[in-house]
């Protein structure tokens, strides 16, 4: 992706300014806006400065945004804010699915996760009144066992993935080679036909597991009603 040097330097300067402003403001009140501006600038910078194809730059930015939102879920002391970060994380995942060529699953992800599950979490946070008080705010476990264990898990997974990816064929260099990633008409067509094949398989070959899942959801529904009901002595109206 060739672009004029002046434009490249302007974009590089914007990118640097975005990084500085984000670092300065990240703990402030406008963190989401700043982070969004930063991600847009990062996409432009990756495209113009480092010459990544736009689709790869988009993927990188979506991935970084999703990871940042996941960190926000884990690290923010207020559970209500964690739930909002969860919405950002799941919507980012949906955008990733869309970019990868799974539009139906992206819609399902938004409907089920960003819609139903996040609202359920927020509902419980409000019901139990956890957004205001101190309870659950600074609840991080003392000691290093948890971070060390999680870091070890992540490191092991990353090393395993990298080894697998590099030993498979042609290493990570090939994987990041833009020439290997052209948009092929046949691939796009196969994506569309995969949508049709998906429905055929789901309601044909995999109909029995599908029905089993519906019974699982029914059982969960009944179980939750039983669980969340007040105890028999104090029961008034459901």
């Amino acid at each position: 992706m060739e672009s004029s040097p002046v434009l490249t330097w302007i974009l590089a300067a914007l990118l640097g300014a975005g990084v500085l402003v984000s670092a300065y403001n990240l703990a402030g009140k406008r963190a989401p806006v700043t982070s969004g501006v930063f991600l847009v600038l990062l996409a432009a910078g990756l495209w113009a400065v480092f010459g990544l194809p736009p689709a790869l730059a988009l993927f990188a930015v979506l991935g970084i945004g999703t990871l940042g939102c996941a960190l926000g879920i884990v690290l923010h002391p207020n559970p209500a804010v964690s739930a909002v970060y969860m919405m950002g994380c799941f919507t980012g995942m949906a955008a990733l699915y869309l970019v990868l060529g799974f539009p139906f699953l992206a819609m399902v992800q938004i409907l089920v996760y960003s819609g139903a599950i996040v609202v359920l979490f927020l509902f419980v946070v409000m019901l139990l009144d956890l957004g205001r008080r101190g309870e659950g705010w600074s609840d991080f476990r003392p000691g290093l066992a948890g971070p060390v264990l999680a870091g070890g898990l992540t490191g092991t997974a990353l090393v395993a993935f990298l080894v697998a990816a590099s030993s498979a064929k042609g290493a990570v260099k090939d994987a990041l080679d833009p020439a290997l990633l052209p948009v092929k008409a046949s691939q796009a067509a196969s994506s569309v036909s995969a949508g049709a094949g998906f429905a055929d398989s789901l309601f044909g070959k995999y109909l029995l597991p599908f029905e089993a899942i519906t019974f699982l959801l029914l059982a969960a529904l009944v179980g939750v009603i039983l669980l969340a009901r007040p105890p028999a002595s104090g029961r008034k109206e459901a």
Partner: peptide, 26 residues
């Protein structure tokens, strides 16, 4: 359509899983 290499996707998924495991533990 499919821009991202599989290895990058796997690394991203590994990082997401690690963050989730971290949150569950701490």
């Amino acid at each position: 359509m499919p821009p991202a290499p599989t290895s990058a996707l796997l690394v991203l998924a590994g990082c997401l899983f690690g963050i989730g495991a971290l949150g569950f533990l701490i």
